[in-house]
Write a protein that binds this DNA or RNA. Sequence first.
DNA 1: CACATTTCTAAGCATTTGCTTAGAAATAAA
DNA 2: TTTATTTCTAAGCAAATGCTTAGAAATGTG
Lengths: 187, 187
Amino acid sequence: MARSKQYNEEEVIEKAMGLFWRNGYGNTSVRMLEKEMGINQFSIYSSFGSKNGVFLECIKSYKKKIHRITEILEKSNNGVIGIKQYFYDFLEFSKDDNGKKGCLVTNTVNELGEHGDPIIMTELKSFFNEIKTLFANNLKQDKNKAQESIDKQANYLAASMLGLSLASKILRREQLEDFIETAFNNL
Amino acid sequence: MARSKQYNEEEVIEKAMGLFWRNGYGNTSVRMLEKEMGINQFSIYSSFGSKNGVFLECIKSYKKKIHRITEILEKSNNGVIGIKQYFYDFLEFSKDDNGKKGCLVTNTVNELGEHGDPIIMTELKSFFNEIKTLFANNLKQDKNKAQESIDKQANYLAASMLGLSLASKILRREQLEDFIETAFNNL
DNA sequence: CACATTTCTAAGCATTTGCTTAGAAATAAA
DNA sequence: TTTATTTCTAAGCAAATGCTTAGAAATGTG
């Protein structure tokens, strides 16, 4: 009954995600999105409503993408060893051609802080809490830990992941490994 | 021989710094700077050359401001205890009305990454290295440490500070304390 | 084929961006 | 007071921003 879309929405979002990941929200213009996504502004707006709409889909897509490694953590039963592995997995996951992308969620929290779109901020915080819960669940596998220390250590690890994400943008691989190794000496 | 400036450059930079600190570089416009600094665009450009020029002065001003607490660390001879105190001092230092500013240097590294103005990036990295050196110097005060472990631990602590800065923008005070306490457990 | 319906192209909208400029206002020195 | 020099006001510039729209091009269904 009518013409059909010449692009796949998931595919173009995947491309947009890369752009936001590298440049941040504010430094990515709709013109840049056009080029990267390979479709023009009309298509962008008819599919996603707004720049914000594109970004929201990118965050969702990011969550799916990173599920590749959160899934491993979820299924792990090695306690703190599994969490440490997640830190290393994250380094591989976030590696760019230059290895300087960090974590899209972390980057966005830092850029938009509390000023960002509420729907997006909710999405970001929920991701952060999911990760923290995964950490806590893994910590529980180490039987000798008190519940109280699990909460503290989950907070510690979650904040450390924020640090790793940021550090991965400016430190060398070797320094990042120092960080991870020392960070887990504490547990 | 001529009219004299009706504003003090240090004072207006101090105000600009607050704006950049809260909003980041990209989300701070020259119009916003006009209002906050209390002078108009002509004065901004004649004093500082460009938006980038204003920002560069703000970074320098930030370094002076934070010297209040780095100085304490510099003079401390409590080894790792002094560093831990610096983490707590930083939390106080970066506290806003809402307690969500983080560290201007860290925020900027995260926002601009490698895309930022080279002069500014150099300024940021030098600050990071100064802090790392201060950490290393303090660690050396604890006599029982091997040189090798000092390097590793200084890397660890520097990256942890990045984490604390980011975490301070989204976590509650109590969680930040969990982070600091656990981070220093085994040093 | 015919055509209703959707997607696409590309031009254009108002607003905001960083930055500049012409001319009025002020002021230290002669 | 006069005057040379600087600072200030406020208007304006081109380019970029997010978003919209009119009309051409395509296509599944009858």
